[in-house]
């Protein structure tokens, strides 16, 4: 049964990577990469069961943590366009800053 699960997860991964290649905007690609990370994490757990090595679960946990941090970092970069940006936010036409007390 784990064989079926891992094959279908691999199939899902293929579809997601197709979206990452097709994706018109950078956000589509980021979305696809985030979902690919989730599926890869599940695939790691399934493969751990398939080969009878529960150590794979630790790798899955680390993968999940890195996945989220990576996604947020990439989004932050593309939102401000620059990692050296001071972090101004435009909301409803009003300019506010993240620096200081806010």
């Amino acid at each position: 049964m784990f064989e079926i699960a891992s094959v279908s997860l691999l199939l899902a991964l293929t579809l997601i990577i197709a979206r990452a290649i097709l994706g018109p905007s950078v956000f589509d690609r980021t979305q696809a990469v985030n979902t690919a990370g989730t599926v890869a994490m599940l695939l790691l757990a399934v493969v751990g069961f398939l080969t009878g090595r529960p150590d794979f679960l630790d790798i899955a946990i680390i993968y999940g943590l890195l996945n989220v941090i990576g996604t947020i970092a990439v989004l932050k970069f593309f939102r401000h366009g620059d990692l050296g940006d001071p972090g101004y936010e435009y909301e409803d036409g009003k300019q506010t800053t993240n620096r200081g007390s806010s």
Partner: peptide, 14 residues
Amino acid sequence: AGSILCMIGALGLL
């Protein structure tokens, strides 16, 4: 069921 749902989600993504 979980694998099928993952495949449906990936299909939807496409």
